[in-house]
Simulated assay, not measured.
Amino acid sequence: MIIFPNAKINIGLHVVNRRPDGFRNLESCFYPVNWCDALEIIRAEETRFTSSGLTIPGETDMNLCLKAYKLLQQDFALPPVHIHLHKNIPIGAGLGGGSADAAFTLKLLNNLFELNLLVPDLENYARRLGSDCAFFIQNKPVFAVEKGDVFEPIDLHLSGYQAVIIYPDLHITTAEAYQKVVPKNPNENLKNLLQQPLTTWKDGVQNDFEEALFPSYPVLPQLKAYLDEAGALYASMTGSGSAVFGIFPKDFSQKLTVTGTTYSVWQGAL
């Protein structure tokens, strides 16, 4: 059985304050995009994980897909499986690729072995794997708060708009990003700002990690400016970086490229 875990972008991101457990409270709109990995799970004689495509750092035993399998195995008599992941979404980009792989593993195992887990059950398992994993269970636009794992509905529809995402082959660790960002109470209500016309977002919808990371990584503001100049209605870094995205009009048909680099570019409809 094969499934295609997709990425997400953050439209606005405020780091509000530090929590007693060491995490930060944040608020952000999570929006799914169709930059995808490919995940296959089949029955096997012994459980193993393999991958192709982009190199996945770290030990295999620490892969989130395998962790998701082991998490369900604690509560269900799952048979051995072979998990194969073709990695296409850049790692360390703020696109949530690893979280998507984990959440889609839960969903695929639920279907494959008829575990009859409901959406709230799957979300609770996903929260144990990572802060934004639960988003990918329902995989629809939400306004995320607390650690990014509590969701409020948001009436945001960008269907037909074009998105361009550029990953500058720059891995910014979550630890570094959060070390540099300064939590602060936002001046404006992000959820209200996102209900305004998209053409007004440039003036108020901000990602707090830009202020923290742009001085250290000048390529990031350069890419944001490039997207603005190309005609983006709104451009921003996603998550804690380092991918930068632009949202373009529905009739935008120009194919954007970044030449002479090892950058990755994805372009498609939202």
Score class of each variant (00 low, 15 high):
V15S: 14
F245I: 07
E146P: 06
N207L: 09
V142K: 07
F245P: 01
A38P: 02
N6F: 08
R43A: 15
L170V: 04
N25E: 15
D121P: 10
G204A: 10
P120A: 03
H86G: 13
A243D: 15
N10Y: 08
E46P: 03
P20Y: 11
L190F: 00
T257P: 09
N207R: 10
E229Y: 13
I3C: 11
F30S: 04
V205N: 12
G160R: 01
I154E: 02
P186W: 03
V142Y: 01
T174C: 14
F23A: 05
A134T: 06
Q206C: 12
L106K: 08
L170H: 01
C29N: 00
I11M: 08
F104G: 03
S28D: 01
S240E: 08
N110M: 07
N111L: 12
V265I: 14
V219M: 06
H14W: 11
M1G: 15
F4Q: 10
A134H: 06
V33W: 01
Y125A: 01
A126K: 03
D208T: 04
K184D: 08
L106V: 09
H86E: 15
P79K: 11
L109E: 05
D228R: 11
G130K: 06
L223S: 07
N25G: 08
L26V: 04
T238L: 10
D169L: 14
A38N: 06
T50C: 13
D75K: 11
T173W: 00
Q206L: 07
I91F: 08
I91H: 03
T173Y: 13
N187A: 14
G12S: 03
